[in-house]
């Protein structure tokens, strides 16, 4: 028999390591052809942070995205970064990039002001590779010209360095008080399942995930990260387990044939992803992280849906077909007698 049910789970999750310094560093140089090189310690592991960091730098310095080259993933060349984890790259490395880009921009504008004969650069605007006076836009020059002038005439190449580490306080051991994180993100997911009571198979037929990540810097990447997280969460909730051999030691399923992650036929066709955009004032352009905890509410939502469908409460993950079937039998036995 097929039984249907719906379950929900909510979460909050911090950006950054708990109650300790976890900085991100950035270098930027603007070349005399008007392109820039952004050198960051944060590593892109497929979530698209290189794109995102380049977006922040380009936006801040008034360059086109294609004019910013990102150097990353080589500790010999890049500044320190506490790592891609703890959902910290967009928020912490993003802030470092924004701060650094702001410094580079200041140098550029100062050079442009000198070249234009201005005493103060406050009315200069930088956009799409050009610098101009806000209320007299005809008075303009390119970033390339400003960078060249700064480098060749003023003797000041456009280079900037900065870093960011969230303000935290270690937790006091006795009371647990302190300020472990600067910002947190929030999400709710709802799963709809069908439980096959003959096999214990749980099919997730629909999943709705609504997340908070402040302002979305790159909606497609945010969506992709949530979709991927949800599917990882389905694996966590229903399929993936490391089976140890209690006698011989070692792992009994050390391959993709036996350690099963979801295939395209194990994920819901109906996946609704949305974000509530409330800009975070401390984040770069209002952004916070999103990726890491996207898988967190999925498994509990599924487990709640199984309970809703069958009355069976699974208390250890994953809810394999075997576990669900045995729990159903157990419940039947209890109800009968």
């Amino acid at each position: 028999m097929i039984k249907k049910g719906t379950g929900m789970a909510c979460m909050f999750y911090p950006n950054g390591s708990t109650g300790k310094a976890n900085p991100a560093g950035a270098f930027i140089k603007i070349n005399h052809d008007g392109t820039a090189v952004l050198n960051i310690g944060a590593t892109d592991i497929g979530q698209g942070s290189n794109t995102c960091m380049a977006q922040i730098a380009a936006q801040e310095m008034g360059l086109k995205l294609s004019q910013v080259r990102v150097v990353t993933g080589d500790t010999e060349l890049t500044p320190y970064d506490a790592g891609t984890g703890a959902c910290r790259v967009t928020y912490i490395a993003g802030n470092a990039v924004q701060k650094t880009a702001r410094k580079a921009k200041r140098l550029l504008l100062d050079a442009a002001a000198r070249k234009m004969g201005l005493i103060h650069s406050g009315q200069l605007v930088i956009e799409e590779g050009e610098i101009f006076l806000r209320y007299w836009p005809a008075k303009r020059m390119t970033i390339a010209e400003a960078a060249t002038y700064s480098e060749r005439i003023l003797g000041q190449p456009i280079i900037a360095v900065d870093s960011y580490s969230p303000a935290t306080m270690p937790l006091e051991e006795e009371s647990g008080q302190g300020m472990p994180f600067e910002v947190s993100i929030y999400a709710t997911q709802i799963a709809e399942v069908e439980v096959d009571t003959d096999t214990g198979e749980v099919k997730v037929t629909k999943l709705v995930a609504v997340h908070d990540c402040g302002k979305m810097l790159n909606p497609m990447l945010v969506e992709g990260q949530i979709e991927g997280g949800v599917v990882t969460g389905i694996g966590y909730g229903l399929y993936e387990q490391i089976i140890e051999d209690p006698v011989e030691g070692g792992i009994r399923n050390p391959s993709l044939a036996t350690y099963q992650i979801p295939t395209s036929l194990d994920v819901p066709e109906d996946m609704v992803i949305d974000c509530v955009e409330i800009p975070e004032e401390k984040g770069p352009y209002g952004a916070k992280g999103v990726s890491e905890p996207t898988c967190n509410p999925t498994a509990p939502a599924i487990i709640n849906a199984i309970y809703n469908a069958t009355g069976v409460r699974i208390r250890d993950l994953p809810a394999t077909r075997e576990k669900v079937l045995f729990a159903l039998r157990e419940l039947e036995r209890k109800e009968e007698g």
């Binding site: 028999m1 097929i2 069908e194 096959d196 003959d198 096999t199 214990g200 198979e201 099919k203 077909r321 075997e322 079937l325 045995f326 039998r329």
Partner: peptide, 30 residues
Amino acid sequence: SERYRRIVAENMMRRVVLKACRICENEGGA
């Protein structure tokens, strides 16, 4: 486990016989 296989063999025997007889009591399962 052996127990899982025994229960599922039973249940799937019912399902496959009904399916062969074209009595589909159960769309959507295995």
